[in-house]
Nucleic acid binder design. Structure first.
Lengths: 387, 387
DNA sequence: TTGAATGCTCAAGTGAATTGAGTTAATGCT
DNA sequence: AGCATTAACTCAATTCACTTGAGCATTCAA
């Protein structure tokens, strides 16, 4: 889902670029590190790491954090990522509005905004995004050339599939090269992804999956999505549509139905139709008041979630499964503590140090922040060559 | 599941090694290629490719195939992989026997053998494997240092999981470092995997998935396994147990049950218990005679498979799903043509050029050949750096 | 106090890529 | 037929980024 595949062959310059990314990524996930420790963890010489660090420091991407004595020998100068060294743009396009967020290199939100769409026509949307970017950069006092790239999140699935035609699809966007469109308009490298994948990446940059390389993320959006991270990279599938978990059939007392029919905002909205339109805040209020209808829905939702966990664990064997998205944290927490974790699963291991199911970031902006995280993840990860 | 993680940092030597693998892999999947074409597809200079080719030719891994004129300009000298340039060892350890196969670089089977296990104790098994290797290499006239590595296939899942304790587990093998054990005994790089993953890789080297990078493989072994290939690499999961598809619940008229209960050799054996022990050949004979009980089982199996396809497609969005393993080809073919392909799936695309479901290699040795294919795949794929 | 361990720098050396000029061998145009 | 064009390839020089080895600084432990 990147603009153009990176070249496969390796040469001196590409080595350096890859090593730079590895150094940055290692420091980011460890918090702070010294040259020698970095050299050891990469199989590079200290001298090589020294050169790379000098370069990164000159570029403003790293800052000195003082020396730390860790035992015998000369204490090591520690470095950490300079939050102000670079910024990532997150763009979420929805049928009604665009959301934009700016993250700094540490993954902290610098600014975020929502802009109602006047037209859904791609050119007009892009123009609106350009304007929004200019405003936000100016307001935050960020130099445009400090922006590393943009992540774009759109409702999937991409291309004409058996799941197309949902209400969440963007009309007129199915057959265009969205990544190229944004990349040319913004003059930035663009990563395109669906909401669940983006949210999954957000957890890796600064959330519950910090430092993890294999995990799954169940995302509550319009429907239900799944973000899969394998070896630190998103599993996108052949056409970028992996993770459409909402359609998989689950077993209920009323017969088989799609997971989404029991576990999604649409399903809770339908069940609690008499309570009007429920946004995240309203659901949180109902949860706080221990609303009986909501609790009844939660029972069913947990039963469905249990089956989803079983399928995900047995197919992927992740280190953990994270629950997040447009749901109040209290509801996610309830699910995490009330789901029956399946016994007949490869996820059921005695030596597991992480919980099998845990809560991630919740809220309306999760996917937008995730979009920006795609960019950060790329900045921190050496690009793998793919044939 | 390799012995030791490759170093992350890149330097000149590692660049060369990675470029060598890329060149080999590209030639292997294209059949034959010239220097200039290779250089273009990698983003390397012709000179660099020239040097690499000279080295590979000197090592006996490539052979000249004469010049081909493809238009204007000087015709290009084509190279292809020398089948006799290297060999891969495949080892499948089962509760009753070890299977061993040798593949040449082109993926062709050179030799294969079965040896009944006298003892399941790891040290004794390894000793038996060592002896078997010596015999087979000698009989085939292969110099030992032409062997690139060994792939080892064992019944999963690995480690103590909620699925442990199956009859297919190897007692006494759960808590040892199997890869190290074989690697030290054989003096070879060893890749460890379960049967489904290995079989999936076999299809990539020379079978139905030749040249594909994203596909899924449903494997009929003792139970049912799933091999997932993402970006040309197996998805192993955090603990190497991804793809345990047999346990996922599916919907049947008799209620929910594990997929394996409807779609596996065990299930057909149970349904046709009155016909005695059924090996692959016996099942093939029943299929040829259009046995009514077998056809009834197939109906149920296809219904189950349809659900599995839906889950796999929606979670992974593969280019294709391949069916293979210890089942007669005729039964696999029947399934491929009789399964109801789910409509509500991201796999249901109009622009798909590959069939959504197709048949792969069938037979008793599939996993053993797959084990050797793991080695070939590594020889042909630049190793990705993983943090 | 002394020696071992550890972090780091400087300067020289090395491996593998790129660059640019030049050769060879096809096709296409006049 | 002759010549320009295109493409594949080689040789030699250069460049890039990493490694190596010598040497210094700082800390801990005996």
């Amino acid at each position: 889902m990147t603009i153009s595949k990176p070249p496969i062959g390796s040469n001196a310059e590409r080595s350096r670029s890859s090593n730079r990314q590895a150094v940055l990524g290692c420091i980011q996930s460890a918090g702070e590190m010294g040259r020698a420790a970095l050299a050891r963890s990469f199989g590079l010489s200290t001298q090589a790491v020294s050169n790379i660090i000098a370069e990164l420091e000159a570029d403003g991407l790293l800052i000195e954090r003082g020396v730390r004595a860790l035992g015998r020998g000369q204490p090591a100068m520690q470095y950490s990522v300079n939050p102000k060294g670079g910024y990532a743009l997150g763009i979420e396009v929805r049928p009604d509005a665009v959301f934009m967020a700016i993250l700094d290199l540490s993954g902290k939100e610098v600014s975020s905004q929502r802009s109602v769409l006047k037209s859904l026509e791609p050119r007009k949307v892009v123009a609106q995004v350009q304007k929004l970017r200019a405003e936000m950069l100016q307001k935050s006092g960020i130099e445009p050339d400090r922006v590393l790239g943009a992540g774009v999140v759109m409702p999937g699935p991409f291309g004409q599939t058996g799941l197309s035609g949902n209400s969440s699809d963007l009309p007129g966007w199915q057959s265009i090269d969205v990544a190229r469109l944004f990349s040319e308009a913004l003059g930035l490298a663009v990563e395109l992804s669906n909401d669940a994948n983006a949210a999954a990446m957000a957890e890796r940059i600064g959330g519950a999956a910090h430092g993890l390389s294999n995990y799954a993320y169940i995302y509550f959006g319009a429907g239900l999505g799944l973000g899969l991270v394998n070896q630190g990279q998103l599993v996108a599938g052949a056409y970028g549509n992996a993770g459409e978990i909402g359609q998989i059939p689950i077993f209920t007392p009323d017969g088989p139905m799609p997971l989404e029919a029991r576990l999604s905002r649409i399903s809770v909205q339908r069940r609690l139709a008499n309570k009007g339109a429920l946004d995240v805040a309203a659901l949180g209020a109902l949860m706080a008041s221990e609303d009986a209808d909501l609790l009844a829905w939660l029972d069913d939702a947990c039963a469905a979630l249990s089956q989803a966990v079983m399928i995900i664990e047995n197919l992927f064997d992740p280190e953990t499964i994270i629950l997040g998205g447009a749901m109040p944290g209290s509801i996610l927490d309830f699910m995490v503590s009330n789901v029956d974790l399946p016994v007949l699963s490869v996820g059921n291991r005695e030596d597991k140090t992480l919980p099998r199911l845990q809560r991630g970031a919740a809220g309306r902006m999760t996917a937008t922040l995730g979009a920006a995280s795609l960019v950060l993840n790329r900045a921190f990860t050496p690009q793998a060559a793919v044939l």
